[in-house]
Amino acid sequence: MAKKIRVLMAKPGLDGHDRGVKVIARALRDAGMEVIYTGLRQSPEDIVEAAIQEDVDAIGLSCLSGAHMALFPEVVQLLRKRHASDIVVAGGGIIPEEDIPKLRKAGIKAVFGPGTPLRDIVAFFEKAGSAKGA
């Protein structure tokens, strides 16, 4: 059995909109990846714990509530604490342009705004997964 790319899709924060995240989950599935979807309102601790147990290559975080500046970096830090920094973290949602460099600096490997084409997102996770497996 070939190694499959595994991605955890999670929604930290309090907003209840998961349409976007589900569209991305399906796109990743259609590209042959295994997507673990953990549902709404997950704490960074829940997300990191799930990512470790599921042994994913990458985490996709979606946040529309505006709390991304607190939540995304916290996920990166918790991964570091658990010696799991090899898990790649990407984020998306409604994220102001000026926040992007700060998030990148905090260890978020890619930030996808609302208009990002799905194929770019798919390509990112494919690359993240293959780089890890290599």
Partner: peptide, 19 residues
């Protein structure tokens, strides 16, 4: 069977139990 991929959703119901 088409893509070889999967969306695994059982964990949604086990929200914070895994911690």
């Amino acid at each position: 069977p088409y893509s070889g991929g999967a969306v695994l959703g059982d964990r949604i119901r086990m929200a914070d139990t895994g911690i």
